Every structure is written in structure tokens, then in C-alpha cells.
Simulated assay, not measured.
Amino acid sequence: MYIFTCSVSLSDGKIATCDGIAYEGKLWLVLKWIRYPSKPVVIPERIIRFDSCPHQKTEGGDLDYQNIQLPMPKSALRGEVPQGIEYIDRPQNLEVPIHLLPR
């Protein structure tokens, strides 16, 4: 699995940076990773779909996708996803080896 880096333009004008993944043929933001204490893997706590929103794929540099335009407030990054935004809490069968995480 490839994990990429995204910049998201929020509705309050702020820019947030987070990880992203491809899952079930769609592109998703990963807001937080949860680590298993007994295995060297992580799972996303929540993923938010962004490929249906305006965004730019970049080549080279620190970001893989930028200017992702999601109609959501900064509070969505803390877990309060508004209506109309597609998301999945703790997606099934999506364990990622820790060594694949960027950083």
C-alpha cells in the first residue's frame, strides 16, 4: 500500500497536511492512525474521501496531492465530519505495516 501526503484547504481558509491512501478505488484522507499494541501495524481511525472534490496531483516535492478543496471546517479533522462528506470509521481489512508510514 502506498501512503501519500496531502494538503487540504479547509472552509475557514486554513491549510492542513495529512496522509492519504487509495482504498476501494477511491482516494481518502487519513486523519489519524491507530497502532495495534500487539502487531507492527496501524489502521486509520477515520478516512475521508477527497477524489470527488477539486484537488491537484503534484509531481516531486513534499506533497503528492495539494489544494484539496473539502467543504468542511477544521473541526472535521478532530472527528466532527459534516453531512455530505463521505467517510468511513475504522475501515475493515486495512492494516498498514508501520514501516510504510511516512516520516
Results as ranks from 00 to 15, higher is better:
residue 2 Y to G: 11
residue 2 Y to I: 12
residue 6 C to E: 02
residue 8 V to A: 07
residue 10 L to H: 09
residue 10 L to T: 02
residue 10 L to W: 09
residue 11 S to H: 12
residue 13 G to T: 13
residue 13 G to E: 11
residue 13 G to W: 08
residue 15 I to V: 15
residue 16 A to Q: 14
residue 16 A to Y: 13
residue 16 A to G: 08
residue 23 Y to H: 14
residue 23 Y to S: 12
residue 25 G to S: 09
residue 25 G to Y: 06
residue 26 K to G: 12
residue 27 L to F: 00
residue 28 W to G: 04
residue 31 L to K: 09
residue 33 W to K: 03
residue 33 W to R: 10
residue 34 I to P: 07
residue 36 Y to K: 12
residue 36 Y to N: 12
residue 38 S to M: 06
residue 41 V to N: 00
residue 45 E to Y: 10
residue 45 E to R: 14
residue 46 R to S: 00
residue 46 R to Q: 08
residue 50 F to C: 10
residue 51 D to W: 00
residue 51 D to Q: 02
residue 52 S to R: 02
residue 54 P to D: 08
residue 56 Q to G: 13
residue 60 G to T: 01
residue 60 G to E: 03
residue 60 G to N: 07
residue 61 G to C: 03
residue 64 D to Y: 08
residue 68 I to Q: 09
residue 69 Q to F: 03
residue 70 L to P: 05
residue 74 K to E: 13
residue 77 L to G: 07
residue 84 G to A: 12
residue 88 I to C: 09
residue 88 I to Y: 00
residue 89 D to C: 03
residue 89 D to T: 11
residue 94 L to C: 04
residue 94 L to N: 12
residue 94 L to K: 07
residue 94 L to R: 11
residue 96 V to Y: 00
residue 97 P to M: 11
residue 97 P to W: 04
residue 98 I to Q: 15
residue 99 H to P: 08
residue 100 L to D: 10
residue 101 L to R: 01
residue 103 R to Q: 02
